[in-house]
Write a protein that binds this DNA or RNA. Structure first.
Lengths: 189, 189
DNA sequence: TAGGCTTGCCTAGAGGTCCTAGGCAAATAA
DNA sequence: TTATTTGCCTAGGACCTCTAGGCAAGCCTA
């Protein structure tokens, strides 16, 4: 009997593809086992449980997203960097809906620190170098940007913007203009 | 044998309470049946299936949230209205985490139109009356505000802001200042 | 108040997911 | 080659979803 050659990495990778196909919430141990032509129980020597699998998937997705964003903002600054960041973020979410959903998992503090989650804040902060913002305004702005990007993508995918004919793409670009303008004249109390 | 007196409404209400206690994803038909001291199968004469139950819960939560927000902005305008809206929105999400998660369910177009989801956009639009914004900027601003509020609450609950010592509350209030400032000087191309 | 009707909740049971315990055999090390 | 590790297996329990069909509580009407 030939072995399937499973590893935690291969499982995580396959889970990521599965997530994009059928949605993050449908990434089950059973489905993954089926995909490899193997019994459910066989996976438990590689992953601790279903939650562990999803955490690994989240960490993978966070790393991919961080990499994309880093590549996008490299060599840019100011509004260029802001737009590049936002486009990379949103594009990743659209191309990899399941993986993107995974990035929103609540990770325990240890995992979050080890993962690329911290890199996000750092990169968002890098964008702000092109603007005249210092602590604590910088942190407030980072949080606002992150929230807006995530909120936009999240609501868009939930269909919240379908009720109005105005194109989502156009609104998105205008919102980036608005955020740029806001960062350039951040209210100082 | 006395009857439990179940109705779709009572089930939905109980599901809402359950969601806030154990999380939206743990709202199961079984758990609900246990709560009423009844067998799982008994619920299927009142609700079609588990998905139907969750949709009803989402519709309930959307209505509650809309009501809170409407009460908050009544009689206010401009920045007052903006802040009241935002606070009501975030407070609801904090007090009713399970219900709030439910509001993010992807509803089919019919249900969404019938539900209070449409009311949200309408109310956000009402806020903008205090600012000098007209179509299509108004729609863009509505989407930006909605995204930011949802994104903030969502990231906050996922623990995304814990990595930095700056208080989330302080950041949130500053972000509202920033949004107010942005709406007052919305960039016109 | 006795009959009949509706309907609320039941039992039984099939199928799916998660996970543990323990076993055999393939791959690797001694 | 033998010993050890490791990968995948079978078996089985617990929980969740949902369907089909049954009995009786509570309502009507006479």
């Amino acid at each position: 009997m030939a072995r399937a050659g499973l590893t935690a990495e291969r499982l995580t990778q396959a889970a990521a593809e599965l997530a994009d196909e059928v949605g993050f919430e449908n990434v089950t141990v059973s489905a993954l086992a089926r995909h490899f032509g193997v019994k459910d129980a066989s996976l438990y020597s590689h992953i601790r449980n279903a939650h562990d699998l999803r955490v690994r998937l989240a960490v993978l997705a966070l790393a991919e997203l961080a990499e994309r964003v880093a590549a996008a903002i490299a060599g840019r600054s100011g509004k260029d960097a802001l737009v590049a960041f936002a486009q990379a973020y949103r594009t990743y979410a659209h191309e990899h809906p399941g993986r993107y959903t995974a990035t929103q998992m609540a990770l325990d503090p240890d995992t979050a620190a080890t993962s690329a989650a911290a890199k996000h804040a750092e990169m968002t902060r890098a964008i702000l170098r092109g603007y005249d913002l210092w602590e604590p305004d910088q942190t407030d702005a980072v949080r606002l940007l992150h929230s807006t990007f995530h909120g936009y993508v999240s609501l868009e995918r939930a269909g919240a913007f379908h009720s109005h004919p105005r194109g989502v793409e156009a609104s998105w670009l205008r919102s980036l203009d608005a955020l740029d303008s806001l960062l350039r004249s951040w209210p100082t109390d």
